[in-house]
Design a protein around this nucleic acid. Structure first.
Length: 106
DNA sequence: GAATTGACGCGGC
DNA sequence: GGCCGCGCCAATT
């Protein structure tokens, strides 16, 4: 891992507490890259298995699981993990961001 | 070293 | 709430 860019994103994701979710844009902003929301997804995509990064707590601004588009199986897994932590999903399979969106506590 | 890509965000309609 | 299109920028090829 020579890219500090990815490491910084992983560090932020690790700070997301259980039962809470954050959007790609928020993670990017917390990592110090306001306009690099897409990069957050890129970083998680190359994320090797077995890493201590709670990638499942990262969803898009619509509160939906974006990974399901590339890997439906991973999408189902992500949702299962979140529900296990107490995160509720709407009828459309979207997370209730108004209640579970996590923001850095000043 | 240039072109392409992408787990996104947001303003407009 | 939903669909359309532009913008952003590092990593990959």
């Amino acid at each position: 891992m020579g890219s500090l860019t990815f490491q910084r994103i992983y560090d932020v994701v690790k700070q997301i507490p259980p039962g809470r979710v954050a959007t790609y844009g928020d993670v990017a902003r917390m990592a110090g890259m306001p306009r690099r929301a897409r990069f957050v997804g890129f970083a998680l995509r190359v994320l090797p298995e077995g890493t201590a990064v709670p990638w499942h707590r990262v969803v898009n601004a619509a509160g939906e699981i974006s990974v399901a588009r590339l890997d439906p199986a991973a999408g189902a897994e992500q949702r299962a993990l979140l529900e296990d932590e107490g995160v509720e999903f709407g009828p459309d399979g979207r997370v209730d961001l108004q209640r579970f969106r996590w923001t850095p506590e000043a």
